[in-house]
């Protein structure tokens, strides 16, 4: 099985050959012999050249989060065939628009911008109350507010579009 793993903007080709509870993993041509125990709870035990690692693995919004040795990594994993199809024919790229989506479920308590407002990076856009805290969501870059899709008092779910900036 061949995969492409993307981490910190860099893609690596990873080949995996399962072999009776062990795995032969090739990352960019370097070979790793791994004795892995993959438990359903996401706490994996890996033995590599006698060294013991415990990695906590979960998948959120299509990204695999790995906590190991006190470090947290976000890795995008896809089968190589899929990766090639997706990246070939390169769909334009360079979207200038910024879409602010709700990162978590909660209630909108304040909307700081209106359509037509000019914003710069760091400007507060929306305040969302979740788990007893008011969290200010800010603009990632400069632009003009094209759409405001929520009002104070609205209940939102993760992924709901709140504000669009062009």
């Amino acid at each position: 099985m061949k995969f492409v793993a993307t981490l910190g903007g860099q893609s690596h080709v990873v080949e995996v050959a399962p072999d009776h509870g062990r795995y032969r993993v090739t990352i960019d041509e370097r070979v790793w012999e791994i004795d892995a125990r993959l438990r359903g709870d996401g706490i994996y035990s890996l033995l590599i050249d006698g060294r013991s690692y415990v990695a906590d693995v979960s998948v959120q919004d299509g990204v695999t989060l790995v906590d190991v040795g006190g470090e947290s990594y976000a890795v995008q994993v896809e089968e190589q065939a899929r990766h090639i199809i997706r990246t070939r024919g390169g769909a334009g790229g360079g979207h200038a628009a910024q879409t602010l989506t709700a990162p978590l479920p909660g209630k909108i308590t304040h909307v700081a911008v209106a359509v037509g407002d000019a914003v710069k990076a760091g400007d507060p856009l929306v305040v969302i109350e979740a788990m007893k805290m008011e969290n200010e969501l800010r603009a990632k870059g400069a632009g003009t507010v094209a759409e405001v899709r929520v009002a104070a008092g609205a209940t939102v779910n993760p992924g709901d579009v709140l504000v669009v900036i062009e």
Partner: peptide
């Protein structure tokens, strides 16, 4: 910082094995 890259390869291995496990 979430990570300083000390365990990057281990993280890649774990993430890919998780995907293998899911597909299996």
């Amino acid at each position: 910082q979430a990570a300083e890259g000390r365990h990057e390869s281990i993280a890649i291995v774990a993430a890919v094995l998780a995907e293998v496990d899911r597909l299996t």
